[in-house]
Design a protein around this nucleic acid. Structure first.
Lengths: 256, 256
DNA sequence: CATGCCGTTCGGTATTGCTAAACAATCGTT
DNA sequence: AACGATTGTTTAGCAATACCGAACGGCATG
């Protein structure tokens, strides 16, 4: 029997975190009423939680009374960013990869059923579409997502996919969990994952695994660009560059 | 009678926030016991709080059991950073200021009795000492701190200074609250604040106020460098550049 | 001046978080 | 290997306290 993660121990803390998550999802200040109905708790409950969060600068209240994410979260974010040795070490590799692949490179990890972009490096040529640092991308419609899923335990990958909707971003998006799971052994065998216009039409992307000193897959490096076709020479070359950048970064992190 | 801010409404949320603050202050993973004794709550209480925070990825637990700030805080930090239009708008001004002043420029706000550095831009010449983005600096020993204090209500400035110790970072640090408060009218009159080796010996710094559309002082821009003396031409020139950069940035933010 | 809409306050209730103590797991030492 | 020390985890019961409905006051707008 697999061990279920324990339910939330402290409900009020959970509720407070839900409020922050709501504010993050909306990406805009919200009124007390909005937060109250969005979270499903009574106004006065939400008020007490927000007051407490406000005292710790986790939220701030605007002049019009609406609540927004607070400045202390910026501090925490910087501290976490510094403690992530990965992104510091990865920077030169990302830059070199962007230069050699002709696309934009990025570094991402798995977090809460999404792909979280840790860092990026926009390529030189023309208009480039890159995920914003700190933004979430879908697991099922991105190369990074498929790659990170591939190196999870099979049960874990199924759990993440079954837990959520798999919305079709383009006609090429794989929206069936089983179909997606069936692709993962191939990803492991090849050592990289490919995305062919599954998130945005015209964009194609490769991702390869970055391993830590214990051999575990810590994150993914990838390239995204306006490549013509997956079979094209440019794309295949970008894939090779991605794999070798990921290997070099892994080595820098102490792999082998 | 001045309105005292209400006490924390939800204690468990407050305790959870204290744990995060402790982790931030130590800047290193901490064991359950360390956190328990640092925060002054029993082990099992801290455990319940940490478990809840962990479920929301606000903390993460390392392989050795120690707790560290979680990856979701990075997400929140990025979101806050994006919503701060100031730092986006300020970037070109900071770059130009660093270039013209011969020092390093930075942007900072008042937060929780400290100066919080939002962005920085290191100058080209030689070794430069700049505050890390996201780090806290003392109010009483920095140009930014004195500047931001100067534009608060007098009562507010006194409250912030009396609440905390004023440790001497160098022999030149002003450690007496009243002496410091007496300097603030001069700062307002001149339109900029100066720091003369009060935080680190050899470093001198200027800061000027950035105003928002309502005329309120939103943050400070400044320059720090290895200037010889405050009276030197280079420093005086840097001060003029700082004031004009602050004014230009204010204008870009809708002042006047 | 009435009306709605908001953020804020208040007090009683029972929910729920707090705690001490026991448990389990890991590690270093004898 | 056995031990003991140290640590993270679980549990159970009590009472503190978080929760909520309802009322308040301020601010717009009609």
């Amino acid at each position: 029997m697999e061990r279920r993660e324990a339910a939330a121990r402290v409900r009020s803390v959970s509720k407070a975190m839900e409020l922050l998550e709501t504010l993050l999802a909306r990406r805009a200040p919200m009124s007390l009423q909005e937060l109250s109905s969005a979270a499903g708790y009574p106004k006065s409950t939400v008020y007490a939680l927000l007051s407490t969060l406000r005292e710790h600068a986790m939220v701030e209240q605007r002049a019009d009374g609406r609540y927004a994410l607070g400045i202390r979260l910026f501090e925490y974010g910087c501290a976490v960013s510094e403690s992530l040795d990965v992104s510091r070490v990865a920077r030169p590799f990302l830059e070199r990869l962007a230069e050699r692949s002709g696309g934009s490179s990025y570094l991402s990890v798995l977090e809460g059923g999404h792909v979280l972009s840790l860092d990026q490096c926009t390529g030189g040529a023309g208009v480039q579409v890159v995920p914003e640092v700190g933004s979430r991308l879908p697991l099922h419609a991105t190369a990074q997502g498929k790659l990170l899923l591939a190196y999870l335990g099979a049960g874990e990958a199924r759990r993440l996919l079954s837990g959520a909707e798999l919305p079709p971003y383009t006609p090429h998006t794989v929206t069936d969990a089983e179909t997606l799971l069936a692709l993962l052994p191939d990803v492991r065998a090849r050592g990289y994952a490919v995305e062919d216009g599954e998130y945005k039409i015209g964009l194609r992307s490769v991702a390869a695994p970055v391993r830590g000193s214990a051999g575990e897959v810590r994150c993914a490096v990838g390239v995204v660009g306006l490549y013509r076709r997956v079979q094209s020479d440019e794309f295949q070359s970008a894939a090779r560059e991605t794999v070798s950048a990921a290997a070099a970064l892994s080595a820098a992190l102490g792999w082998r």
